[in-house]
Design a protein around this nucleic acid. Structure first.
Lengths: 198, 198, 198, 198
DNA sequence: AATGAATGAGCTTTCATTCAT
DNA sequence: CATGAATGAAAGCTCATTCAT
């Protein structure tokens, strides 16, 4: 169920996002979310059947925003070196600029929630599931170049080479282990390309 | 507290590992661990002050084993292409061969447990913390080559480029999205090198 | 408070009757009643101060209807064998023909609702309370014959002998344990008479 | 699941019986039962998986006790007038002497709990279900005489004639509407027989 | 007058932790 | 030492009731 964009609904989703990103799913009781959102507990269950549904809804919204943010910048074929690099840069910037989003998604994807979600998708559409929704636009555009400008490896492997580094880098940036600047980010994007180009 | 290597203690840790890997931290009550380990609940609290301590202890043990497994295979300078590739292969094989270990660590590192741990370390020893313990041997050996055979980027960035793909690949393999063979694994290792080599 | 016979009011009472008969008092939220009645929740509280009051009002209405249905068929002295038998038959037919009414009353009378109600009545009017309202016409007419055609036992005992079987029979019929026909019903009525006649 | 006869277990069951008899299932929170039993809430769930299971267990125990109390006094064929009367007397005495038992059973049998229970039984053993467990000994012994000393009516109908009055009488006695004495009880038993004898 | 979104007290249930045996 | 029965704080969730619209 996608998030109905009521004011109250968004307040709840935002409060939940903030708290869960810092405390985890199980460290964040509904009552706390309610208080932080300035809402009664009961109201949360008006909008979301379950705590689970709330979490899935937040995930869906974040994926969607991410999708929009990225597709806005994508012009064409990711098998094209410059485009690939631009997108890696955009992705890193988006996640670093929205740390709560990153922290939430990290937890979500490595929890029973995300795994369940992946299974569901796998059953209904095996192809769609070779990557998380987050990178679907990337994924499609990468597939196109396989065997031409991009190595002829299984899609999941290309995917790992392209996005594994991004996630790790963002994690380290948010943890304060790396100070990013434009030049470094450019080099990082180029390095990613080096690993998948033929 | 590291795991005292009593028989009972190991039984508990093993039971916990198996159950947590499949069910998550919060899906695995102490009582279930006790039953699965053939031990009384009370006994668990003799060895581990807390559920948290149990989890951290398991994590520590897994890191240690991983460390041992990998250093056993390392001969020299990772800034050397062949060595790097061998190590990526060894790491993938080890994790794919020990899925419970991988699943546990994935959860741990992306949960408040792991994050808290990272913070603790950061405070006491900034250097040690630039990478997770898991890849410390890699990390040290990679540092050595920076600016020579390896790009002159921040260590954390090199680290992300080198290990991000590994983790993502293992995840996809365990999820059944990729079928691995020796040739593919070799190409994967080479690709990793391509991204960090000068 | 008796049911004001507004359209909306009756719609609510009917919806509540249907739902409660099948799901019980506590399995039937006000919100469900409102939906089923095509009315807003708030409106229910305009007509009935409480959920309790709604339930008591429904009970009162059912008693009244039962009263009317039965007195319509009563001509005279129940101490008269034929009249008694006719009335037992009418009562059984009425209840079997209105299963929701029966199910509601059964629950009501055997719940704190009914018991509380009985107490109230007992305090304000001991006589009225020697039987449930439901059988008041029966009761009065039976009293008349005590010591003549009917055994000289306490009224409540006569009452139990006369109506206990009816309620039990209806319950078994509605549960599908007995298939009724005219002949059986006649014999049943005669049997009831046999137990109270001198 | 029958009640394990631990001390604590019995304390819980007794507390629950008392409270539920007076306040109903839904007026009696587990926390209150725990307090009244001098036990922690958690302990209740050690013995009973559910609130439902607790209630069913109490019911089962009461049925069993009733069964024992009555069969202790039964010597032979209920189609025999004197035996039937003795048993009606015994049943009335037992229920009047144990008002909590009566109140609990009344509520149970007329609630979704009891109805569900009856359905279960009906599915597994249609015959057994024509009467509630409570009267099974009665029932079997009555069946024997059908067509001989007892009217040739459907069993459920005989059952209604024989036990409907008992339940109603007990209810009225406990409500204070009838003052019982040995003579009245004897006449009551005889009246019951009058309704079913050929 | 009618509505239904909002509320929060209160319920059932879980589970880490303790401690008497 | 080892055990597991006992505990109760805390969680998720429901629903009668209110009140702004």
């Amino acid at each position: 169920m996608s998030i109905e964009e009521t004011d109250k609904c968004r307040a709840v989703a935002n409060a939940a996002l903030e708290l869960i990103a810092e405390q985890g799913f199980h460290g964040t009781p509904i009552s706390q979310i309610a208080k932080h959102a300035g809402v009664g507990v009961g109201s949360i269950f008006r909008y979301f059947a379950d705590k689970d549904e709330l979490i899935h809804a937040i995930h869906a919204r974040l994926e969607e925003k991410l999708h929009l943010a990225l597709t806005a910048e994508i012009g064409g074929d990711l098998a094209n070196r410059e485009l690939f690099i631009q997108l890696v840069q955009a992705l890193v910037r988006h996640l670093v600029g929205n740390p709560l989003v990153f922290k939430f998604l990290e937890q979500y994807l490595n929890s029973p929630y995300g795994i369940e979600k992946m299974r569901e998708k796998f059953l209904e559409d095996a192809d769609a599931c070779l990557c998380s929704d987050r990178e679907k636009p990337f994924f499609n555009l990468l597939s196109a170049g396989r065997g031409k400008t991009i190595k002829d490896l299984p899609v999941a492997m290309i995917h790992s080479l392209a996005f594994g580094p991004v996630i790790f880098l963002v994690r380290d940036i948010l943890a304060g282990f790396v100070e990013l600047n434009d030049d470094l980010l450019l080099q990082f994007g180029e390095s990613g390309w080096d690993s998948i180009k033929i």
